[in-house]
Design a protein around this nucleic acid. Structure first.
Lengths: 246, 246
DNA sequence: AATCGCATTTGGTATGACCAGAATAAAGGA
DNA sequence: TCCTTTATTCTGGTCATACCAAATGCGATT
């Protein structure tokens, strides 16, 4: 049941699937990045150096660099020396952005992604209500107050809104969570930015945030989950018309 | 044919981003895939056709195809005509496999990913306990029975174990969830396969599954979550030694 | 020391060629 | 007629070379 037919992952013992010359170069550079020999921020060897060093043509050297860039291991802007980027959860998730953009064109994708986000975030508020520590509460409270202060300014409200939710993703202290949040918001942002904004709407959202916060403070996971679900369901109803004319 | 002319006012908004010739070809092919003109399974035009059609060199045509392949929109095996693949959630997640493989080399990554899985799966069993329908229960029960029958055969037990958990991901009827499950299992499989297996261990796991199932049947979300957490925590303790000598 | 200007470096693109595996058509045998 | 074998064509993979334009580096100028 292998649905991942993409060549990499294994350095050796690949039947006859792929035998590209660039594989060697890619593997070698990967190893250097993993070992720290090529630390984050340093420049990748120039293409003409790579061909000397590995005895390959520039075609192959270029392809190797391009593949590393596709994986996010190096940042290759046109006419700039490629910069090594130590992979993080964010770079991993950002590798999805392109393909997700394609998925967005299919009906139901936005809803599916949003539902997934709601599902995860419901679990997060529940977790917060059960396990939030005193300093966690403080951070949450600060985010809430910033959100309240930004009610008149829709642009700033959007930022503080995201920050409040981001705090929930940081509570479990698992770096994967914030990365997922950033990925979600990045994907859904285009749709959300199309949503008309108004201070009265901001106030409603703020009140939802406060309700969530209060439930967490009360150590009431069910209440927090209920509040979160209501909050995001309302937001969905508010934006669904902006892209789904049905 | 030189088309760089530098005076094209078509796209001037990108100050430092990218102005590669392959972008045009990539965009055009993306559009054809999205529109269905290039349906899933069909062949991409040959490189030499692309150069004729878009008036670019084979270098550029090749790079365009390579980039589509990197995004998972086409499946390009060496010396085979590239096959168009309509993007799905699985292809999206599989785009992560490479970069996640790199992340696995860093300490703590496996634990972080596993914790994320546990977190999500706990929410899933809770959801199942609250919203599973009669036919859902039936599927779950069938998976459980298959799991029990496979206790003596560790290989088969592994498969039915995964299938049981997969059922949980299918319950919300959100296609993103099963894709996430497949991604997680794909990433963690190498570590799990290293774990020694034995019928007695299988039996313990089966009992955990049954406990989860029973809690779902009893509409007891807290019990289901507790059982799931215990189950996966035990599994973690059992395998952590296989890669983390600490 | 700050600035300007030119030579160098470096990535992007274009050509043309050749190879090897794969697909297809042609030839041959059952 | 059908299947197997063989020759031809296709197609992607790689190499070599050359030129362009942007970015960089360095020395001369102010």
């Amino acid at each position: 049941m292998r649905l991942n037919a993409t060549s990499h992952d294994t350095i050796e013992a690949m039947p006859l699937a792929s035998r590209r010359a660039a594989d060697m170069v890619v593997a070698a550079l990967e190893a250097r990045i993993a070992s720290g020999e090529l630390h984050d921020g340093s420049f990748l060897p120039a293409e003409r150096e790579l061909m000397d060093e590995f005895g390959v043509s520039r075609t192959v050297a270029r392809e190797a660099v391009a593949r590393l860039a596709g994986r996010g291991l190096v940042e290759a802007r046109p006419r700039f020396r490629p910069v090594v980027r130590r992979p993080g959860y964010d770079t991993a998730l950002s590798a999805l952005s392109g393909i997700v953009g394609q998925l967005m064109g299919q009906t139901g994708t936005v809803k599916n992604l949003y539902d997934t986000r709601v599902f995860l975030e419901a679990a997060l508020v529940r977790h917060a209500a059960l396990h939030a520590r005193k300093d966690d509460i403080g951070v949450l409270r600060a985010a809430l107050e910033a959100n309240e202060a930004a009610i008149p300014d829709s642009a700033r409200f959007y930022a503080t809104d995201m920050a409040f939710h981001a705090t929930l993703y940081e509570l479990p202290r698992n770096p994967v969570m914030p990365a997922i949040h950033r990925a979600f918001t990045g994907w859904l942002r285009p749709h959300w930015e199309r949503m008309p904004r108004a201070p009265e709407r901001n106030r409603v959202n703020y009140l939802s945030h406060r309700e969530i916060y209060q439930s967490i403070l009360d150590r009431d996971p069910d209440g927090a989950e209920r509040a979160l679900n209501g909050h995001l369901a309302a937001a969905w109803e508010y934006v669904r018309g902006t892209f789904d004319p049905a």
